[in-house]
Amino acid sequence: MSVLDTVASLIFYPPIWQLLILGFGGALVVAMVAVWFERKAAARVQRRIGPYWASPRLGGLMHLMADMLRYAFQQVVIPRTVDFWPFIAAPIFGMALSILPFAVTPLTSNPNFWPLPPALMEYSLLVALAITTLPPIFIIVSGWAANNPFTIIGGVREAFIILSYELIAILSLFAPAVAVGSLNIVDIVQAQGLVKWFIVLNPLAFLAAILAVAMSTSAFPFEIPESEPEVVAGPFTEYSGILYALNMGGAYMRRFVFGLLISLMFLGGWYPIVPGEGFILGYALPSLVVVVKAVVVVLAISFLRAIYGRYRLDQALDMAWRLVLPLTLAGILLALVEAYLGIF
């Protein structure tokens, strides 16, 4: 075995590949495109151009690269009043945990390319959802560590929001699992097949899931923890330079991870491509389809910025508990009925 082979096998060792190359790199690109789309689409609605002059041919996509690089090289101001270690650690852990669900998310039905051994994939949905609940804790930590009135209010708001959306997100993403009777993401995707997508069969749970994602990643109209007119940038007020970029990137990556889960649970995963053998047919094409669907979900959520303002905190919580939670439960009920009828 030559060195080249070793390196290649190391890179293509599924967990590494999936987590670092696809997870981090891909998510970074997706985050960039999502922010660019958010700004550009809003600009189109608002009858203007949006970011443009850094790269006219790419429609200003390089502005996002410039923003990222600028943050990377900018001074990191650490105020004297902060708790140093939590302040530094929170964004890093938040970012790392944001992309960790990639490590258990299969993007193809070909077992050779699963990130984990088949035996461990049995509970992949459970593990993925469990990890998605962790990053918000670090947002609260960062708000608390920054020790500033605005960050603390922002952190408390984030805590409120977590309490309300987490249940909805988990339950609504479980609805397909209930219908299929398996916690294995691959099984759920395979059960959906070419036509029986859950977006059609269980629109209630899908809607609830979209709302939960918008809430959890503080997209409009639920951009409450970072609501500018009262709490400047919410928990991230004191962050500057690369730490702020990590925080902001973390939110978009979480949105992307949720988009991935939604595309697998509700949008038929890699179908209409049926994964075959080999790298191209077995991994590249199916995962591309999954990612494209996820990106569509992310962009759709980002587009809400142009249309809605933001809700008040109590209104958002009210909506979550009174409207979306019953919707989710109805979705679960619907899934049970489907399971009883034996559609799968």
Binding site: A42, R48, P221, R305, Y308, G309, R310
Partner: peptide
Amino acid sequence: FGVFLGHSTMYMWAMG
């Protein structure tokens, strides 16, 4: 007012 309510489209339209 639009900016205060997080409605950037209203800002842009009214300003335009």
